[in-house]
Nucleic acid binder design. Structure first.
Length: 571
RNA sequence: CGGGGUGUAGCGCAGUCUGGUAGCGCACCUGCUUUGGGAGCAGGGGGUCGGAGGUUCGAAUCCUCUCGCCCCGACCA
């Protein structure tokens, strides 16, 4: 492809509304263009990267035994009513009406359509398992789209769904898909980590996310450098409480006068005890009424874990205005002894511990020597706290690390949530009707491309990993001398003949402009042909990643560049 | 949804407070010079100043309403 015949418009200045690096560089490099908040055009260069990633994804899906289909973006509301999500999904679901005033949605995901499809086509266990995928445009009306392609409203996603007659069959496919994801991201040369994830609203029993590690990531990833443990912070656990001393014998409950100690740190300082020896009381409001959660004083409550344990849809910190009425005590001195809260949870780190120090439900008062079971009803124990960096790994005990990550893929064991709601059943060997067991597997195409840019760039622009670079090689002619153009053209044509993806910068521009553009767009390899080196019968080539220039005769450079591309392709 | 900000040429911005026929840089077009890291000079084209209404002899500028966009927060497969 010749630059002068292509469609590239680079910007010298960063558009004012771009906030993350991938968005800035892709907009400047002429790869994407914002049309509305969270809605982008993929310009030709950007589309090439997208399509190259899609090709890799298709190969890996095929290898994992998944078959491609394409479902509609616009879906009838009835399907969503049937699954129950017409009510539940909320404002993120873009609802539209056709000219007959019939309700439709622009699909944010495709469980409904695929379940209907498989339900109608499959009736016997002999036809299972089924594994189907598509690469398609979704729309989610995010409250706050941001970060360019990383959190758009309209976005391209690969989504796959599998249907099974047994748990074992689902496990097998789940593993195959998980492997396929790992291979896909590895082939894109992305530094990523698979982690255990919260299953969220979608439900289901097991779930893993694939996180690309990058500063701009919206998620926090807990990982162990020694063993292979990795989990989203929403889900991660640790053995932080194992350093607790042996429980002392129980003492009597005794009130403590603690004036002006609103926070747990105040109380610790006042009583001259480390906050880890105190108990912090959190109160949340849910649709089922207020819930009290007790955690060790130095830890933080994890709302996702609490929400999942309770099985509620809404959970938020109880506002001060409702506090006294709900708990029977003032803010800052809340505790489980004699509380009005019907439900009291406690983090497992408190289990077996004696003589708690808790709020006294009276102003300026705490209580020491409090023991669950004796002084207040035994609470419900569970894991309700968030992991801190440096906590011991739940598997091996070594220190956990926390990094920022971009969620580029998510695999779920869905179970029978949708098949039951939508009557997607099969007949087993005994002729009995059973709901199919489902899995679903998402991979953000645009987000992965953006994540690659987040992870690989420098002050001058993008440094594309070869497998998803818009072109593998750029040939830059420097100067307009006849032999320069002739040599550059020849190299360009030979590279094309070798099947290399090459862009020929044949513009009549000054060298600086061409080099700056090449760096900005980030072609992995560059061949520069200029009069100066050509006088010695040489041309120059370099990798974008280090830009170290090497000289050689055209034929030798050509061979070397072809070799480097092939090497990268098979890596 | 709450708080803050912003909207002037394709991009980046000034002008708004203090009303008087719209400006700068980049990009674009023409010419000459230049040619290995975003050239120089000269000339040129392009904007109903987000939209509607109002005040005024006169509105980018003041007032009212409205829309878009951005940031922080809450929320989120």
């Amino acid at each position: 492809m010749r630059w002068t015949r292509y469609f590239i418009n680079t910007l010298r200045e960063v558009p004012a509304d771009a906030d993350v690096i991938s968005q800035k560089l892709m907009m400047r490099g002429g790869m994407i263009r914002k049309v509305a908040a969270g809605i982008y055009t993929y310009l030709p260069l950007g589309l090439r990267s997208v399509q190259k990633l899609e090709a890799i994804v298709r190969e890996e899906m095929t290898r994992a035994g998944s078959t491609e289909l394409l479902m509609p973006a616009i879906q009838p509301a009835e399907l969503w009513v049937e699954s129950g999500r017409w009510q539940k999904y909320g404002k993120e679901l873009l609802r539209i009406k056709d000219r007959h005033e019939r309700d439709f949605v622009f699909g944010p995901t495709h469980e409904e359509v695929i379940t209907e499809t498989v339900r109608d086509a499959v009736s016997s266990y002999r036809q299972l398992p089924v594994n189907l995928y598509q690469i398609q445009t979704k729309f989610r009306d995010e409250v706050r789209p941001r970060f360019g392609l990383m959190r758009g409203r309209e976005f391209i996603m690969k989504d796959a769904y599998s249907f099974h007659s047994s748990r074992e069959s689902l496990d097998e496919t789940y593993e195959a898909m998980r492997d396929a994801y790992g291979r896909t991201f590895r082939r894109c040369a992305l530094d990523h980590v698979p982690v255990e994830a919260d299953t969220g609203n979608i439900g289901g029993s097991a779930s893993h996310e694939f996180m690309v590690l990058a500063q701009s990531g919206e998620d926090a990833v807990v990982s162990c450098p020694s063993c292979r443990y990795g989990a989203n912070i929403e889900k991660a656990t640790s053995r932080f409480f194992e350093d607790e001393p042996e429980p002392a014998p129980m003492t009597e409950m005794a009130p403590l006068h603690t004036p002006g100690t609103k926070t747990i740190d105040d109380v610790g300082a006042f009583l001259k005890k480390p906050t880890s020896r105190l108990v912090k009381t959190l109160v949340f409001d849910t649709e089922n009424g207020p819930v009290m959660v007790l955690v060790r004083g130095d830890r933080e409550g994890n709302e996702i874990k609490i929400k999942n344990f309770l099985g509620v849809n809404t959970l938020e910190m109880l506002p001060d205005t409702k506090f006294e009425a709900a708990t029977g005590g003032p803010v800052g001195y809340c505790g489980p002894v004699g509380t009005k809260c019907k439900r009291v949870l406690a983090d497992s780190s408190l289990k077996g511990r004696k003589d708690w120090v808790v709020g006294g439900n009276k102003p300026d008062t705490h209580i020491g020597g409090v023991n669950p079971g004796r002084d207040f009803p035994e609470p419900e124990y569970g894991d309700f706290t968030t992991v801190f960096a440096g906590d011991p790994c739940p598997r091996c005990g070594n220190k956990l690390e926390i990094h920022r990550g971009i969620e580029v893929g998510h695999v779920f064991k869905l179970g029978t949530k949708y098949s039951e709601a939508m009557n997607c059943v099969y007949l087993d060997e005994k002729g009995e009707r059973r709901p199919m067991i489902m899995g679903c597997y998402g991979l953000g195409i645009g987000r992965t491309v953006a994540a690659a840019v987040e992870q690989s760039h420098d002050g001058d622009g993008i440094i594309w990993p070869m497998p998803i670079a818009p072109f593998e090689v750029v040939v830059t002619s420097v100067g307009r001398e006849e032999n320069v153009l002739a040599t550059a053209t020849e190299i360009y044509e030979k590279l094309q003949a070798e099947g290399i993806e090459v862009l020929f910068d044949d513009r009549d521009e000054r060298p600086g402009v061409k080099f700056k553009d090449a760096d900005l767009i980030g072609f992995p390899l560059r061949i520069a042909v200029g009069a100066r080196s050509l006088a010695n019968g040489q041309v120059e080539w370099s990798f974008r990643r280090d830009r170290a220039k090497q000289l050689g005769e055209p034929a030798a450079v050509l061979a070397r560049v072809v070799e480097e591309v092939r090497k990268a392709r098979t890596a």
